[in-house]
Computed example of a mutant assay.
Amino acid sequence: MPFLKMTDLDLSGKKVFIREDFNVPIKNGEIQNDARLQAALETIQLALAKGAAVILGSHLGRPAEGKFDPELTLAPVASWLTKHLRQNVELLHDYLHGVSVAPGQVVLLENLRFNVGEKKCYDALSKQLGELADVFVMDAFGTAHRAQASTYGVAKFAPIACGGPLLVREIENIERSLSNAQHPIVAIVGGSKVSSKLALLDALIEKVDTLIVGGGIANTFLAATGARVGKSLHEPDLISVCHEILEKAHRLNTLIPMPIDVGTAEHFDEHAECVFKDIIDTTRDDMILDVGPKTAKNYAKLIQQSKTVIWNGPIGVFEFAHFTQGTEKLAQTIAGADAFSIAGGGDTIAAIDQFNVHDGISYITTGGGAFLEYMEGKKLPAIAILESRFADSNKI
C-alpha cells in the first residue's frame, strides 16, 4: 500500500488523532453491537504502547450539523472505552481550538458530525482538525468512501497523515479476496435491488468463477431468463441489464447459477407460511421470499468447492422465521468451508449474528458502503489522500 503506516512511526510523546468508526447501534444509552469498537482496540492500544497522547474521533448517526443531539452523543462509547482501556476516557465537547492530553492518556471527541462543515469537508474545519495533533491516523475504513472533513480534509492539513492498523488490515483482506485470491472464487451478492449493486455485479463477473445472486436481485435475474416471478420484488426496467450481465458472464465463463426452486408466500408478511415450489411451477400470485432446499444444496456445493468466498447480502428474507433456511444454509456452509471467506454489509452481519457463525468467517469487514465501493474497483477518497500525501513527501 503506497501510504505511510502508523506502525512505522515513532509516536513517543506525540499527540495522535485517530479517526475511528464508532458508528455503532445504541438504544437507551446502551451499545447493542460493539464489533466496530472491538476492531479499533488494537490500533488504540498500539498507539498507547508507542507512547502517544491519543485523541479519538468518530461520527455517530446523521445529526443536523451545528446542533447537539443527546440521542447521538458518543457518551456510551466513552464509557465503553473507559472500561476496555482501563483508564478514564473523557468525552470532549469543546475541542476545535486545541486538546489537552498527556502521553499514555486517551480522550474522545464528541460526535464529529455535530460540527458545521463536516460532511461537506469545509477547509476551515479540516484545518482545525488537522492542527489538533502531530500525527493524523485514518483508521476508519467504514467511512473511507466519504470525502469529509474528519476523513479526507484533515489529512490535507495534518503535519503527518498515515493509515492505521485496522485500515491496513481491511485493505489486505479485501485484496486477498480479489487481486491475491485463490481460485475458485465464489461471490454471493444479495439484496433487494440490482440498481444498488449493478457496479459491483459488473466488476465481480470479471474476477470470480461463480456469482450467486439472491433476494430481489435474483428475482430480476430470474425474470431476465423468462421465469415467472409473480408479485415478487424485482425491477422490470432492469431485466434487459440483467440479460446483458448474463451474456457477459457466459462470454467470460463465469457461472451465475439461477434458483431451481424457491420459497414462496401469498403476501409479504412475517407470519406467512413458506411454500416451496420448483421455479417452473410459480404463478402470477406468488411472492418469492427465499430459495428452496434444492437450490440451497446446489449453492452449498459450489461454496464447498471454492478457495475464496466473498459474501455481501442475504439470499432471502431471513428476518421472517419461515424464510430463513436459504440464508442460514448459506451462512453455515461458508463458515464450514475450507476457504478464505470475507463478509460485509449490514444485512450480512445481521445474518452472521442471527446464525452465530462469526468464528467460521475468515474476515468480517467493518465497512458497508466502503467495502462495496472498494470491491467495485473505486478509489476511496480517504485512502487516495493518504497516498497523495505519501507521494508528495517522497518528492521532497
Rank of each mutant, 00 (worst) to 15 (best):
A203Y: 01
A75D: 15
D34V: 00
P236W: 04
H243N: 15
T73S: 14
A331H: 04
E65Y: 12
L302Q: 12
F318Q: 06
H93Q: 15
G368K: 10
R113K: 14
R169T: 13
D202Q: 14
S12Y: 04
Y152C: 00
I205M: 11
S196V: 01
F157C: 10
F157P: 05
V317I: 10
S362F: 00
P236F: 02
D278C: 00
D202E: 15
F22L: 14
S177C: 13
A161W: 01
V309F: 00
L85P: 05
P257D: 07
L11P: 04
N253C: 02
A102Q: 14
K329H: 04
K193V: 04
G326T: 13
G345P: 10
A124V: 13
G367E: 03
A158M: 06
D10L: 05
V262F: 01
I279L: 13
K379H: 13
H59C: 13
L167S: 09
E30Y: 02
L380V: 05
Y374N: 10
T220I: 11
A296P: 09
R36K: 12
F355I: 14
L4F: 03
A265Y: 01
F355Q: 06
H84F: 09
G142C: 06
H145W: 04
I342H: 02
G344V: 01
E387T: 11
T348S: 15
A249S: 11
E110L: 11
Y95A: 10
R169G: 03
F268A: 15
G215N: 05
Q305Y: 06
E270V: 09
I288H: 05
